[in-house]
Structure formats: C-alpha cells, structure tokens
Nucleic acid binder design. Structure first.
Lengths: 231, 231, 231, 231
DNA sequence: TATGAATGAGGGTTCATTCAT
DNA sequence: CATGAATGAACCCTCATTCAT
C-alpha cells in the first residue's frame, strides 16, 4: 500500500500519532521518576506539547500512567503468549518465563520494572489495581501450564496454584527489586538458571521415587518401540 | 493514686509519653493511608495534639515515619532473635520464621505490612533505605541459619545465599501482598505449612541422579505426547 | 480597537504584560514593607492574581525581589550612563550624580530607596549581594570619572579611590536614611548643592596653592589669545 | 567590703545575674546572626536557661534585642563622653572619634557593628528607632564640638550641622559596611587618618577666592580641552 | 485542535509566646 | 522562680487541572 494513501486520513492519523507520542514520552518519564514524582509538566515537555494537550487526550495523569502500564504489559504479555506455546514441557516453559521475565525487566533500561514493582504496591489504589489485572494476563501462560501440569501429576498437586504463583513471581520480584535498589545487575543467565532450578525443585512431586521412575522406564521402553525416525 | 479524671491524651504529658502517643498515632495513620497520603495534620489530630507539637518531637514527617518503621521492625526482629535460637534444626527455624512472618503481617490489623511492603518500594528514597536496613536485621536469624546449613551440607550449597533469601522472602511478600489487595485473609496455618514445605523442597540438596532423571522424564513425556499424538 | 471594557489587570494577559504587572505590584509592596515583611500573598493581591500565578512567573519570592531591585537599578544606572558622559569636568559630574541620586531616591514615593538601603544590609545574603553588584554599575560613572581625575591630578590622589566612594555614597546614604526615618523631606536642591560643595572640598588637592594658580593664570592668558568667539 | 556580705541579697543579685547572663548571651547570638535569624531558642540555649525564662525577664525577643543594643551603645557612648572632653581642638576630637568608631566596630569580633548597621535600617521599626535614638547620644560628643566650632568660625558655618553629621558618620558607615561585606579588614590606623583628613578638608572654612578660583580652573581647563583639541 | 495562562486546594514547617506545674 | 510542654498563626511553595482563545 502506497504511503501517499495514508495521508487520506491525516486527522485520525495525527491524533493517533499524538497519542503515541504522549504515551511514549510518558513511559520514559514515569519509568525514570515513578508515578508520584512525575509531573504532567515533565510529560508535556518530553512529548514536545503543551501541558494542556496532555489533558486533551487523557483524562488525567493517572489515566495516562495506567495506559502506559497497560501498553507495556500488553507487549510483554503478547510476547509470552506467542512464545510459550511453542515450548514443550513444564520445565522448558518455566525456564523460558523466568528468563524472559528477568531479561525484560533487567536488560532494558526502561525502568518500567521499577515502575510496576513500585506502583504495584503504591498508595495510588487505581494504579495498583491495574497492575494487578495486567499481571493476571502476564502470568497466565505459565500459570495455565502449571495448572495443567498439576492436573497431570507432572508437578506436585498438593499445593494451591496460587501459592505456586507466589513462589515463582515473588522470588523473581525480590531478585529484581534487590537488583534495582543495590544497583547491581546480576548475571541474567546464571540467575535465571539458578532460579529456575530452585523453583523446579520446589515444584517436583514429593514422590519422585524410584518406584515412579520404574514405572516411567516401562513407559519409555514401550514408547520407543513405536518410535523410529527423528521427528 | 493519679488524678481521678484520667484522659487518654492528657493535655500535658511527659516527654516520653507524648512521644509514644505520637508514634502510636503516627503508626495508625501511616498504616492506614501510606506515607504520601498521610498529612502531618492527620497525625496531630490522631494524637490529639496540635500540628506544631508533632514538630516539637520529630524533625519532620519523614523522620517520624522512619521511627515508626524502625520501632515496628525492632519489635518483630527482637521476637525472632529471641525465639529462633531456641529452635533446633534448619527446618524448624524455617518453619517458625515463615509462620511468624505471616502471623505478624496478616494477623494484626496494624496495616504495617502494607506500609513496609509499599514504602519499601516507594518514591521516598530515604524510607526505602531504612526499610532495607531494617530488613537486614529482620532476616538475619534465618539467613544466618541457612548460611550455616549450606556450609554443613544440610541444604543445597550450589545456590547463592542471596537467591535463597529472594526465594523465601519474595514468596512470602507475594503471598502477603496478594492477601492485602484481594482482601482475602488466607488460613495462616495452612499457608505457612505449605509455604514452608515448598521452600524446603527447594532448599534440599539435589540427589543429582534423581533430579536429572526427573527432568529427563518430563522432557520425554512431553516428546512422546507429540510423537504419537492421541494413540 | 481593544475590547471596550478594559481592565487594569485583564484576567488573561500576555506573558510579558503579566510579568510587568507582577514586577510593578511587587515593587510597590516590597517598597512599602521591605522584603521580610512582604508576603507572596500580598504581592499576588496587589497584582490582582492568585498566589500561584506569582510562582508561574518567578521561581520564588526572593527571585522576584531580586528582579525588582535589578530593574530599578537598571533604570537609574542607565540614566546616569546616558547623562554623565555629556557633562564636562569632574565637578559637573559630581554635582549631577549627587543631585540625581537625591532626586531619584527622595522625590519619588516609590520607597525603593528604603528597600535598597535596608536590604542592602539585611539578613538575606542573596539580596544584599545583588544590591552590592547593582551598586557597582550605578556608581561606575562617577567612580570612573574620579579615578581619571586622580590620575590627572585634578583631585587629590593621596586617598584610595575606595575611600572617596565611601565618602560620596556614604554621606548620601546617611542623608537619605535620615530623611526616611525622620520623615522630613529636605530641600533637594539645597541639600544637593551643599553636599556637592562639601564633598568637593574634600576632593580638592591639598596644594591648591597660589603658585598653582599663578601657573594657571598663564595658561588661561595664553589660551585666551587663541580663542575669540563664544564657544 | 567583704564578699560575704554581698550574699545578703541573693535574690536580687541572682535576678540581676540572670539578666546579665541573658543579655550577654543575647548579644553574642544577635551579633552573630542578626535579629531576624536569631531565635529565642538559640538565646535560651546560649544562656543555659529554658526558653520560657527568657520571657520571665524580658517581654519578648524585640525588647531583649533593644536592651542589648542600648547597653552596647551605653558602653561606647560613655567611653566617648569620658575621653572626648579631655581632647583639645576640633581636629583632635574628630580624629579621636573617627578612630574610636572604626576601632570599636572593626577591631572587636563582637559583630555588634553588623547588627546595628543592619538593624538600623531593617524592617523592624522599633529597633531602628532605638538605634536612631542611641546614635544621637553616641554622636553628641562630636556634634556638640562641631556646633561650637561652627559658632566660633573654626569650621565652615555655611553648612547645616545635620549635613556634617551625615558626612562624618555616613562615610564611616560606608567604610564599615564595605569591610563587613567584603570581609576585608582595612588597616584601621591608615583608614582612620585618611578619613579624618578627608573630612577635615571638607570641614575647613572656604577661602572663598581660592575655592572659586579652583573651581573656575576646573571649568576652564575642561573648556580649553574642548576648544583647542589636541593642539 | 492546541495552548498559554491561571488557579484552587492543600502541604510541611517555623517560631515567638503562653501557661500549668 | 524556672521550666517543660504546647500551640496559633503564618508563610512559601507545588501541581494537577480548567478554560478562554
């Protein structure tokens, strides 16, 4: 499609552009200073527009920040939703999610990590609620996987799923916040592997006994008999 | 015998009493509204004194909040330091710490939980620093125990201690914050036991062969499912 | 043609106009009450705007006052810089400066005199510094002239220039402050002439002797021979 | 008289002592920080008493400061009143007063100089009034002498006495304030001599013809320079 | 639509002074 | 008498938000 045609809807396009400019500027400023310490004046300046224009497109500072957070979660949630299904096995998925989480929140200098970790618990209740909601979708790919794994006995089923989520994401948040406050960036790969391993140990059914292994041996033998070529 | 007409907040109190009154009032208000949304006027009113009196005893709002937090951490840290040494075995200590943590932060209606969880990540850097420092002492009884246990091979030594701390306290914070935001108080006993059990599993030294097998099993199972779909 | 209903302080003014309005109002209020006793609320009221508007245009009370003082010194310094060079002879320049100083500071009811005399010595160090700096420029036309006159032997050179400045401006300040505190306005013309005469006596070289006059007579006679028409 | 007897009026003595302690402490603090920036708390602390005690002996901060200033002026005025009469001749008295003034205000580190110079013009009208009054007595020894000298034709009588006072004390104040703000202590002896000499020149009766000639010379010289440029 | 301009609604802090003990 | 304790009354400043142009 030719570029020139896109000029047929300049109004709308302009409007959308403006919104994007604002969101982008707002993300930058909110990331750097946090919600409370960011002023609408800073955002307007960063976006190169007047302060009033911010309020033309967003009802207020809070709503703008909410949108920023929603958009960001959209991005990283989409990524997970796109990638996780292609992985096979609970362990692989867990490993991927852990690594992706750390990479996303540590590797980029976006500061969004500090924003969501901080505002997720901040005094602004609406913000905290939005973050809580966004987290639900973000954690779904892994949680769904874990739920299924529990149902199939691949991981221990004697723990509420909710607690597993606390274990996984709580640990990671603690790691991240520690990194943020101490300003020491840990080796992401090592940390991801270690964290995965730790969590994995916790997830394992208690009865991973020799008996179970024995049963498993039979399964494998039987299976192998049916499989010849490299899939 | 004191004056027959006793007031809860006498108009003229001894310095120490007034300080306690103020700290107590401040703890109540800060707990309920968080640091930022609390005004010095609210604190003064809650303490039954004029706003200026607050500043007679504390240099400012921040310092008052810091003292509130320090005092609270003092209390719960002392408790741990008193009780933990009497327990024998890593598991017993872990179990106690987890349970005490949940009890302290969930059972009382003080709201201090929300305050420290929230302000520990909030925009006021000085507060966050104080909380970080207090946490160090608070987590020491368990962390010392875990360090020793690592040295003696009672728990896995292939993980940095720091990561174990993230696992333990991160999980708990997540549980707590979840409880705060959803306003659903979980069964403390059950949750404490389950959490202890989960963490304990993660801490156990790996029986390498079993673990490897276990993970191998997961991979193979997953592979089989795809190789011979719905046999 | 502008709107038929003109206000002295239109609710929406151009930035420059508002700044002028504020500076003008501030000059009035600061002049009357001095820096410390002036409140930002008073200035806002005098300018017919809200208190917040004051802070839209000036970083704070101090900066506003500084601007008021700078502007005022700009005016009177420019005047001197414009007029003094057209005058010939040290005496004429001294006479003009003294008269202009008294006229400026006594004749107008601006009260700026009291402000600069007072704040020039007040507790606010930044203000005092600004006034000191402004005075340097203000006194330059005369001081440069005196310096040159010293070099050419027209006035006594055995005194530090600095002391001559103290003599000239110290005397005048004392006269002015006396007028302010006693609320008696002296006859400006008379006072200016007398003060000039007093100072001039002090500036004269000690050796204005007959010998020098004798030499001078020759000079004049010689000169007159070359000059015919009325210059 | 034996010391023990003085103990028969301990109450009164104690009271007087306390007042002296307070005045002494107040002088120290006011001198250092100026009136406005001094708090009653500072004074109380410096005196080693409680803040309330200050108000037991003085109606308020202002009155205390007034007393401090009065006492100080008493001291230096008494000194002058004691010494000046012993001197003979106008010049000797002028010389002494100038020197004594500079010595008193520059040599001691009391800071009273800055206090009276500053508060003499400050926004607190009552203080300024007190200082004005004190100055009258302080300047009297010299002013009386000058008045008499005028009557006797020893110094020029064509100037109001008031103006001579402005000349003398204005010059000195300017010198002092300059010293205070630039923090450069001038050589007191040299400055005193030079200032005396300058002022003395101004005070001398005009030898009318010489003076007129002198001024005429200045005018002619200037004119000649323009009439026959660069001959 | 975009904005320059203006502001309402607080917030934290200071300090001279009062008063019951 | 001395004071520990308490406070009333300001004051400067911030900022999200509104509105006329």
């Amino acid at each position: 499609m030719p570029t020139s045609l896109q000029r047929t809807t300049p109004r709308r396009a302009k409007s959308q552009e403006r919104i994007q400019t604002l969101l982008s500027a707002a993300r930058r400023v909110f990331s750097e200073h946090g919600y409370q310490r960011t002023t609408t004046a800073q955002i307007a300046q960063a976006a190169g527009v007047s302060e009033a224009t911010v309020f033309t497109y967003f009802p207020g500072k809070r709503e703008l920040c909410i949108q920023v957070i929603k958009d960001w979660y959209d991005e990283i949630s989409s990524e997970l939703e796109r990638d996780v299904p292609h992985l096979h096995g609970v362990h692989a998925k867990l490993s991927h999610v852990v690594r992706a989480h750390l990479v996303t929140l540590l590797a980029d200098g976006s500061g969004m990590c500090a924003l969501v970790l901080s505002e997720g618990r901040a005094a602004e209740p609406e913000l905290a609620q939005v973050i809580t909601d966004c987290k639900r979708r973000y954690t779904a790919p892994l949680m769904d996987c874990l739920a299924e794994a529990q149902a199939q006995g691949q991981i221990r089923a004697d723990m509420p799923l909710r607690l597993l989520r606390d274990l996984v994401y709580g640990s990671m948040e603690h790691v991240l916040w520690d990194a943020i406050t101490t300003m020491k960036r840990p080796r992401i790969d090592t940390t991801a592997e270690q964290l995965t391993e730790l969590i994995w140990s916790a997830l394992m059914p208690k009865d991973t006994s020799l008996a179970a292994l024995s049963r498993f041996k039979d399964e494998v033998s039987e299976a192998l008999r049916h499989v010849q070529p490299k899939t």
